[in-house]
Design a protein around this nucleic acid. Sequence first.
DNA 1: GTTTAAACACGGC
DNA 2: CTCAGACATATTCGG
DNA 3: CCGAATATGTCTGAGGCCGTGTTTAAAC
Length: 531
Amino acid sequence: MIEFATLLERLAFTPSRNMKLTLLREYFSMAPDPDRGYALAAMAGSLSFSAAKPAMLRALAMERTDPELFAWSYDYVGDLAETVALIWKPERKEHDTPVAPGLADVVHTLERLPKADVPNVVRKWLDACDTSSRYALLKLITGSLRVGASARLAKTALAEMASVAPDDVEEVWHGLEAPYKELFAWVEGKGPKPDAKDAPVFRPPMLAQPLENVDLTAFDPAEWRAEWKWDGIRVQLVSTPQGERVYTRTAEDIGKAFPDILAILQDLGSHVVLDGELLVVQEGVVAPFADLQKRLNRKSPTASMLRDMPAGIRLYDILFEDGEDLRSLPFDIRRQRLESWYARLKPPRMVLSELISFRNFEDLATLRENARSEGIEGLMLKKADSPYVPGRPRGPWWKWKREPLTVDAVVMYAQRGHGKRSSFYSDYTFGLWRTVEEKRELVPIGKAYSGFTDEELKFLDKWVRDHTTKRFGPVREVAQGLVLEIAFDAAQYSKRHKSGVALRFPRVARIRRDKPAQEADDLETFIRAFL
DNA sequence: GTTTAAACACGGC
DNA sequence: CTCAGACATATTCGG
DNA sequence: CCGAATATGTCTGAGGCCGTGTTTAAAC
């Protein structure tokens, strides 16, 4: 645990990416198995302990600290693990020389121990650790490390050890589990490259960059293909002799929630890996994203759900066919392979993603702006010769979403942020005007926290401090005097806000210092325009 | 004791 | 998903 | 031609709303 703690501490204080890579490489070559494997898993976010959660840590901290003091400290520090690590006063008996637990010990214990016993063990560990190890232990339990290095950087460090490309590590990663012994053996030249063979493993998908500040006139329309950008869930369908899977783009296996799709894959009996968009399709019509969400996290869908919200797939791409890896082939060739595969197998509930024909990008821009129908959020542009590469390379694929909508809203409340924003009021709840019994009042429609620069954050923070009318713990109510232009992708009805509406992807587009609060938008106008 | 509601956690966008 | 910022690397510019 | 300035690419952290499932607290 001490070595891991030292690593985290150094990472957190090193801004340089190259230095972080060096630190990681050094740690990985120095630390023993299985510790280093669990450290890697922690950085990659693949550790989760159902018996130990942030709420439990907060409860433990409360045993030793005045709740009020703890709340203020947490508010100030902005990070639960750091707060508890600092505030914890170890209770030690005399002549007792406590030994901090090893990383592998911690992981094994937390995985196996009955939930009721976990607080006692964690308390004992916290007493035995110094501040730095305590911080590492707590970070391990809270999950998100946020120490300036995440999964990708850790994998890059491993790749450098083996003198291979980071994508090679990414490729073998998903067939493996903590503590990743085979992976370390490979990068140290002591073992073969791990091979998933015919196992139904996840392949890192290719993602698109947003099309911003890109000069389309420099593009040759003949070299580009266009498709609709569907508002569903990007999935990878895997069918091998060893089994079938439905993966999300972050490798979550969601097959249980979509047995209808899984059954189709089984019936196909074709050894393929497909890329597509999962949607709820009712008689050929794509249902709103909310319907898909209802099915997404269910352990198993009810019979009525399977009937009323049937899942369907828009096929984008084919990665493997009969075990052959097609990813290095150009998009156009893969598309031909996809079409011929589709024609041969005729899979039910799947349709090919339509290739939109266009003469020039002006035509396409018109299509994009008019694309406000259900289920479509814009266009995808794909270069005809682009191979399928993992990650989000700049150049081959672009997502060209519709222009966001905007509304002028009034700041009502502000809240302190976390982490590096813990000393700023960085989240703003804003509202629109509503007239009740001749009285014009503000009702909240959402919160936003991004879209402003650090400079603007300082202005907003000061404005909040100078115009506070009430305090509720970390939240401040402010005078009705500041208008924000809020950009958002869609509006929907919601129970979350008093106004009954909510925004999808809200962000601050502009601070309207010039606009009096009274001239901000009305809820009624908003609903008429966007719902 | 059992049912109901609220709060938290998670992963989708 | 969004966005801004930090760092690293690639490219261009000025001497 | 080389070093400095600028542009571009990649990665990171901060956090929004939604629905489901789980756990905890409150009400019956």
